[in-house]
Computed example of a mutant assay.
Amino acid sequence: MSHPDPRDPLGFDDLLDDEDRAVRETIRAWCQDRVTPHVADWYEAGELPAVRELARELGAIGALGMHLEGYGCAGATAVQYGLACLELEAADSGLRSLVSVQGSLAMYALHRWGSEEHKQHWLPRMAAGEVIGCFGLTEPDHGSDPGALRTSARREGTDWVLNGRKMWITNGSVAGVAVVWARTDDGIRGFVVPTNTPGFSAPEIKHKGSLRASVTSELVLDDVRLPADAVLPEVRGLRGPLSCLNQARYGIVWGALGAARTCLETARTYSTTREQFGRPIGGFQLTQAKLADMSLELNKGLLLALHLGRRMDTGSLRPEQVSYGKLNSVRVAIEIARTSRTILGANGISHEYPIMRHSANLESVLTYEGTPEMHQLVIGKVLTGQDAFR
């Protein structure tokens, strides 16, 4: 038997088909060409330059809304979308966030809950990367409790008038369309808001210590007047935004493991060349124990992600199961990033290596799309039947 591949010791690739691997290699090659050589500089500068150009390139390789059907979308499987998220976040969490917000939040909301006019008007251009979308749910005072949101939409004649603030919105200041959730007399509703509508603005949030190679914004809505057909017609209440969040959380299940993989592979390679006491540090027992534990957790996470992806492809994936995946993947990824840093010693804090960047990014991934505490309580309700949220 041949020697096991240290990058795939359990033979995970054997569980994928040729099309799965082809999708993964397309995304990986694009990231290695367009992102990896530059992302450390972007991160230090606190910007994602040429984001609209990158979006068009991502559209050209079918990465935007790739798991959706029709309207110019690729119609990929959930597993293939997951593999794409893994490769994107292996480059940088900010890049995966760009794609997740575009496809799993903004485009999914339109595809699942929008009118046919909404779909025809927006989705083909969003799939091509010609229009960037954002998703306005989180508010300055309401993150984990979206049911308490304050942004309002009132009727004036046949129009809707929106007022409120949204916070921590990926893609906000570069978006051409925003899906905004607001409180109405008829419950929480979603609205399709072209960002050139008078009264809408999206100041970019600066001075971030995480997701620095990503566009993060506030959304400000001051008497934003929309026509009657701007509302998403097919949903009322929290079912709408939560269904979108479930899609995004699924992408994180895979994506966080991509960041972990990059950290582990950096540490493993470093351990074979860095010498102390006259030998590579990878030959010492404590270093091997760290590498073994990290590899174990990463590969368990990949098997769980694949299981969830196949359930999604058969239509049997439950939101509670996504919570298992999101909670596990991010926990594992953060621990792998921190342990990998110790193997590199002082070099681990240098942006010459990707570990500290991934470690900082994962602190954001830990709490967005549901904090670990919220996912623990989702799982706790499954196990006890008791709702601890209220």
Rank of each mutant, 00 (worst) to 15 (best):
S201Y: 03
G240R: 15
G237A: 11
K206S: 10
G237M: 11
L226G: 04
R268G: 00
T197G: 04
V224P: 06
V215G: 03
R165S: 07
D222V: 09
A182K: 05
A256W: 01
A256Y: 02
T197F: 04
E234Y: 11
V192T: 11
I169Q: 09
S201F: 05
R236W: 15
N171V: 11
P227R: 01
A267E: 09
L221W: 02
L221M: 15
E265Q: 01
R236I: 15
T195H: 02
V253D: 06
C244R: 09
S210M: 10
N246L: 13
G258A: 06
T262I: 07
V192P: 11
F200V: 08
T269H: 12
A178E: 12
L257H: 05
G237I: 14
R225I: 08
A202I: 08
V231T: 09
R165I: 13
V220C: 04
N196I: 13
A256D: 04
V235D: 11
G255E: 04
S243R: 00
V215A: 09
A213N: 06
L264N: 01
A230R: 03
R212T: 03
L264Y: 03
P194R: 11
A182I: 03
G258I: 06
V220D: 06
I252E: 08
M167F: 15
S201N: 08
A230E: 00
V253P: 02
L219N: 05
A228Y: 10
T262F: 01
L219E: 00
D186H: 10
H207A: 11
W168P: 01
L264F: 01
V177F: 02
L238F: 13
L232T: 03
R189W: 09
A175V: 14
L242R: 14
T269F: 09
S201Q: 08
G251P: 10
A175T: 14
R212Y: 05
E218Y: 00
F191N: 03
H207Y: 09
L257M: 07
P233C: 00
W254N: 03
L238D: 15
P233D: 06
I169A: 08
P227V: 00
V215M: 04
E218H: 08
E265I: 01
V220N: 07
N196Q: 13
D229G: 07
A230P: 09
P241W: 15
V193R: 02
R189A: 12
F200T: 02
A228K: 06
D186C: 13
R183E: 15
A178N: 14
R249M: 15
S201D: 10
Q247D: 15
V224T: 04
K208T: 05
P198A: 05
E204M: 07
R268N: 05
T170P: 08
K208V: 02
K208I: 01
G237N: 12
D186T: 11
V193C: 11
S173Q: 10
G251C: 12
M167Y: 13
R261G: 09
L211S: 05
I252P: 00
R268S: 04
R236V: 12
D185I: 07
S217C: 04
V180R: 13
S217W: 05
Q247P: 14
